[in-house]
């Protein structure tokens, strides 16, 4: 075991030793990887909503819109982060919807949706950011067919570069850009492979 470590390091040094010089780290501007600008969107949220729709995600504004969307989709039973549940239940549009605040693994396929907090979002890519410390249950955000990320407006970031800078010390940060998908079968797009088939980001 330790032999392997020593062997690998010694082989690396031996391999690099004959090099007359080592390639330097290139200088590069943090702005460089930022994608094409979209001046047609006045507000950051509008760009975000456009980008999320491009990857077949669903942007919604306000809990009323969310409640109506879930009722219309017939999704009236789901999981909700205990820290968000009072705020969600207070919205009259959720009157016919049952929320559970404990995710029961034995009934994993009964939850039609899961509502958790978005630690952030990225406007230029339509991405939702989920940090482990702010996600009440990993399975609640992953297993149900519909995942709803509740986004506070001040947490909407402009670019992936900003999002990288804000990774912090969380052990597990997930960027989710649209619903789970595959094109393994003949290149045909199918959504909802293992993760959510519907990805909603709701601005509250």
């Amino acid at each position: 075991m330790n032999d392997d470590r020593d062997l690998i390091f010694s082989n690396i040094r031996k391999a690099l030793e004959p090099l007359p010089e080592r390639a330097p780290y290139p200088e590069w501007d943090a702005e460089m990887p930022i994608c094409r600008e979209h001046p047609e969107f006045a507000e950051r949220w509008d760009l975000y909503a456009y980008k999320l729709q491009q990857v077949n995600g669903t942007p919604l504004r306000g809990l009323k819109a969310l409640g109506e969307w879930l009722v219309a989709a017939g999704q009236t039973f789901g999981y909700c982060d205990p820290k968000l549940v009072d705020e969600v239940r207070a919205e009259p549009a959720f009157a016919g919807i049952t929320l559970e605040t404990e995710f029961d693994r034995a009934r994993v396929d009964e939850y039609l949706f899961g509502i958790t907090l978005a630690s952030g979002a990225i406007a230029e890519t339509g991405t939702v950011i989920l940090k482990d410390k702010e996600t009440s249950a990993r399975l609640g955000a992953l297993a149900p067919w519909t995942h709803v990320a509740i986004l506070r407006p001040e947490r909407l970031l402009a670019s992936t570069a900003e999002a990288i800078a804000s990774l912090g010390d969380d052990p597990s940060v997930i960027w989710a850009t649209g619903p789970s998908k595959t094109a393994d079968v003949e290149g045909i797009l199918i959504e909802g492979v293992h993760g959510p088939g519907t990805q909603i980001c709701c601005l509250v």
């Binding site: 230029e124 890519t125 410390k133 052990p171 960027w175 850009t177 789970s180 993760g195």
Partner: peptide
């Protein structure tokens, strides 16, 4: 533009998760 899931993992799950 980005793959659907990009995960940044640097350790075991956080306390309370």
């Amino acid at each position: 533009q980005l793959t659907v899931y990009s995960q940044f993992i640097k350790g075991p799950r956080t306390e309370g998760q």
